[in-house]
Design a protein around this nucleic acid. Structure first.
Lengths: 227, 227
DNA sequence: GGAACAGATGTAATAATATTACATTCTTTT
DNA sequence: AAAAGAATGTAATATTATTACATCTGTTCC
């Protein structure tokens, strides 16, 4: 029962210069280093980026350098990242992107189900599905072993595809700021689907955000309060 | 199966001048008109306001004129209202409140479970619980027939009290903008509680926001698309 | 009654988040 | 190689929210 953990205290820092340009970054061969990776992405991150590029192109989307950089920064961060954080991190070398640049990349990544927006934090996290895909096939060549008809439905219930329902559930710790995506059970989403069906509501996207105290912080608070 | 409906196209308009001041507005006797009601609140709204004042004072909160006005405007509106909408509506007669005024009132009302914030819209709606209370006892004198220990747990699962869990579920229609609070079933919240318990997460507040098409708009879209 | 305290409000400035509108460049298609 | 569509660059601005500090109000305690 391991949950993808995204430990908070936001504002991670990365490094250096500019990337190439508008052309779709090809995934699969020679692992993206040749495409320009000025932010010091880890090997793991680059693997996920390649995987994302594959998912993307299946849906007829183009994983451009801009979008790749933004996704990479979000993947690399150990906490939800705000749009203006990203903006700042993108201000390396000669490039000085303006807000629309980042927001457009974010919109694209959201539409393709590669990231989620946490409304209560106005911040973004990677979709855990990406990691799951990558575990199944780290090469990034095959984005899903069960992929059939052009888009992919993950175990956690949300779809990677322009046509599907985007849904995600998060636990947000008020003490340490840690955010955890609940992606290991379809029960919540199933329940929402049931209720929506009963009310004849067509669900297109859903978000569940629970705030409180994570395991660790619950323990610490009890320790501090007792006696 | 009637759901409280909040039909959207925001920015409702109300009228006129300033209210009294800092003193807690008393509920129950003579229905609040004597307290100054410059916004043309309906009788129904005034009833709910009185009811809210009662709930509030039970929790040791003070329903001041400022807070009452804000709650009234939210109750009166037929759609989620933004903070700056409220600000504008409060700009009647001599008063020119600044943002903190409104945000403070909103914080108070949120803490006391009288309103909810819809994250995806950055806007506020009344908690349906208030209406339910009022139906049970329109006088506002008894805020809950089953009130025992100082705070109230409604059928919809959220509590009215500084100590409780604040939770709400919304259906948001992308076509007409209508927002519906799901308050007629505890299933969703129960499920969240279960999952949080499994993950040893202490839930303090939860929000579920589903975007899509309401019954009406689903029908209309299908009609427009078919053939 | 009046001092002291806490809570609530007033006010100005500014921070943080997000969008609009339009020009330019790149990619793909024809 | 031209046309069409997608993506990006850029400047300005809109929207939402907060900080910091002064003032006022109501309550409590003597």
């Amino acid at each position: 029962m391991n949950m993808p953990r995204i430990p908070h205290p936001a504002r991670s820092r990365n490094q250096t210069s500019a990337a190439t340009d508008n052309a779709p970054v090809q995934a699969g061969h020679d692992s993206a280093v040749q495409a320009g990776d000025p932010y010091g992405f880890s090997e793991h991150t680059r693997g996920l980026l390649d995987c994302a590029a594959t998912l993307c192109s299946r849906q007829g989307g183009r994983m451009t350098a801009q979008r790749r950089d933004v996704l990479g920064l979000i993947l690399q961060a150990d906490a939800p990242v705000g749009a203006y954080d990203l903006l700042e991190q993108l201000r390396v070398s000669d490039r000085r992107p303006a807000p629309p640049t980042v927001y457009r990349a974010l919109d694209f990544l959201l539409e393709h189900g590669l990231i989620h927006r946490i409304e209560r934090l106005s911040a973004f996290v990677p979709c855990t599905h990406l990691s799951h895909e990558d575990e199944a096939d780290p090469s990034g060549a095959s984005a899903s072993s069960s992929a059939r008809s052009g888009h992919v439905v993950s175990a956690c219930g949300h779809e990677h595809g322009a046509c599907g329902v985007h849904a995600a559930q998060f636990l947000i710790c008020r003490a340490c700021g840690g955010v955890t995506e609940i992606a290991d059970t379809p029960r919540i989403l199933d329940m929402l689907r049931t209720v929506c069906r009963e009310k004849a509501f067509t669900m297109q996207s859903a978000s569940v955000e629970v705030e409180g105290l994570c395991v660790t912080c619950t323990g610490q608070q009890e320790a501090g309060t007792e006696r």
